[in-house]
Amino acid sequence: MCSIPRSCLYGGMFDYVSGANFLGEITEWAGFALAGHSVHSSAFAVFTTVVLTSRAVAHHKWYLAKFEDYPKSRKALIPFLL
């Protein structure tokens, strides 16, 4: 197995979750839904959350399988929970 490049997947929220980019986008669309006050914006935020959560979990499982030195304490999407 190869080692994780030091410049990749470290720093900021990546120290706590594998999918920090997904978490950021979910937060962004949740804010849009709050600002939009419409069924359409809320539906889009929910859809985005479902899709990106599944992608974050899949990426996390791949990292764990591919890299033996990948931090086992790191979560997929939500720090300390998921």
Rank of each mutant, 00 (worst) to 15 (best):
V57W: 13
C2S: 12
I4M: 07
Y70L: 01
F22W: 11
I78A: 04
V46S: 06
Y10Q: 06
L81N: 03
L9V: 09
K66P: 00
A43E: 08
M13E: 06
L23T: 02
Y10P: 01
K66S: 05
T49I: 14
V57N: 10
L23F: 06
A56H: 08
S41D: 12
K61L: 08
F80A: 09
E28T: 09
A43F: 02
M1L: 00
P79T: 06
T27Y: 04
K61C: 02
T53V: 09
R6A: 04
S41R: 05
D15Y: 12
M1W: 00
L81A: 06
C2P: 05
S18K: 10
F47M: 10
G19Y: 01
F80H: 12
K72R: 06
G11Y: 03
A56I: 15
L52M: 06
F80L: 10
R55Y: 03
S7C: 15
H37F: 04
R74P: 15
S18P: 04
V39L: 05
T49W: 15
V57K: 07
F14K: 09
A56T: 02
T48A: 12
L81F: 04
L82I: 12
V17S: 00
L77Q: 00
P5C: 04
I4P: 05
G24F: 10
S42Y: 12
S38N: 08
V51P: 02
K75E: 01
M1V: 08
F47Q: 14
Y10H: 13
A20Q: 05
H59Y: 15
F47P: 03
S3W: 04
G12C: 11
A35P: 06
S7M: 06
M13I: 10
I78S: 00
G36E: 14
V46M: 06
L77R: 00
H37A: 14
A65M: 14
K75V: 06
T48L: 03
F80V: 08
A20H: 03
S54A: 03
I26T: 10
A76I: 13
I78T: 05
T49S: 15
M1T: 01
V50N: 09
C2N: 14
L82Q: 00
L82V: 13
L82F: 08
A30F: 04
T53Y: 10
G31H: 00
A65V: 07
A30C: 13
C8Y: 13
A45L: 02
D15I: 06
K72G: 01
F67H: 05
I78N: 00
S42H: 15
S3Y: 03
R6E: 10
L34T: 13
F14R: 07
S7F: 13
Y10G: 07
I26L: 04
V57P: 09
E25W: 03
R6F: 02
V39D: 08
G12Q: 07
F32H: 05
Y70F: 01
K72N: 12
A58G: 01
G12S: 08
Y70I: 02
V50H: 12
A65Q: 04
R6N: 14
N21S: 04
L82M: 12
I78L: 06
A45M: 02
S73K: 07
R55K: 07
D69N: 02
L82R: 01
H37G: 14
A65D: 14
M1C: 01
V17C: 02
V50K: 13
H37V: 11
T27E: 09
A76T: 03
V57E: 11
L9Q: 09
G12E: 11
